[in-house]
């Protein structure tokens, strides 16, 4: 008891200070119109911030279904569009691959993603059972994402452009010159395009798209825009820095492209090389 009183005697000034300070503060915010308004508006700002914070979560749940529906619808529309790419010349009978829908789209959700390693990878929630195969191209609504490099029955792993092992055949949209796009392992927003000859007219801001060579991507899918130009050490080629159009930090739904004729094309190409 005496100990407690002694303690109180030594520390009462803390208590007294708090009581007086709280009293002054209460007076301040209750009797002064300006401070009162600021005080109240701070309260509103805090609760407002809290509400918008919680609503991002609730909205994520509410819009999850909507997102999925939209992704499915996009894929359906793209498939319809891909089927329409035949030449509309009824008087001229023809039969070739232009008539067919060469590419088929399906969608998948990104369930895991990395942007800060040399060997970045993206995991999708669809696998063999949903028609995913090794070597299919992956794009988002903003542009090319990468290529599927591994599949299990329900998941697939994509090597994105921002994986140092990845190379994608790309070209400059308006000149048509093509080169090889690779990533130097630094910035997830930038890749390098090499193999474009020094005499090609290029300016900053030019669009870089897929070349359409190979069977993975259709021609002309957006990859990014030219950010910086440099000549390589020997002066024969450009080293072009490309601003990637896909934001790898924000990926949620992607589309997987399968080339229906890929097998036939590869087979023909294979026959050709074995013949040589």
């Amino acid at each position: 008891m005496w100990g407690f009183l002694h303690f109180l005697q030594r520390t009462y000034h803390y208590l007294l200070f708090i009581v007086l300070q709280v009293t002054a503060f209460m007076l301040l915010v209750s009797k002064n119109p300006y401070q009162r308004a600021e005080f109240l508006s701070t309260g509103v700002a805090i609760s407002g911030g809290l509400y918008s914070f919680t609503s991002t979560f609730t909205q994520a749940f509410v819009y999850k279904d909507a997102n999925e529906k939209l992704a499915a619808e996009n894929v359906m529309l793209k498939n319809m569009l891909a089927g329409k790419t035949k030449l509309n010349l009824p008087s001229f009978p023809y039969s070739d691959t232009l008539e067919l829908a060469t590419y088929r789209y399906s969608y998948a959700k990104v369930v895991n993603n990395s942007v800060n390693k040399l060997g970045n990878a993206i995991t999708l929630n669809k696998g063999l059972a949903q028609g995913m195969r090794v070597g299919l191209g992956v794009v988002s609504s903003h542009g090319v994402v990468g290529v599927i490099k591994g599949v299990s029955s329900n998941y697939s792993v994509v090597l994105p452009i921002i994986n140092s092992q990845m190379r994608i055949s790309s070209k400059l949209k308006h000149t048509g010159y093509f080169g090889s796009l690779y990533w130097d392992g630094r910035d997830y927003r930038k890749a390098h395009l090499e193999g474009i000859e020094h005499y090609v007219q290029i300016s900053v801001g030019d669009t870089v798209v897929t070349s359409g060579y190979g069977t993975i991507f259709p021609e002309g899918m957006l990859i990014g825009t030219v950010d910086k130009l440099d000549l390589s050490a020997d002066g024969a080629f450009y080293d072009i820095v490309v601003n990637l159009s896909t934001n790898y930090k924000k990926l949620s739904y992607v589309e997987v492209i399968s080339n229906i004729n890929a097998g036939e094309q590869a087979k023909t190409e294979g026959e050709q090389t074995t013949n040589e």
Binding site: Y12, H13, L16, F17, L20, Q21, T23, A24, F25, M26, L27, L28, V29, S30, K31, N32, Q35
Partner: peptide, 27 residues
Amino acid sequence: KWLVLSLGFGVGTAIDYLTATPGLHAS
């Protein structure tokens, strides 16, 4: 200590009273 604190509050309140800013100087 109680005198220092009370005096601080008292003087502050006196100023507040004279300048019509309750609690400001006291705090």
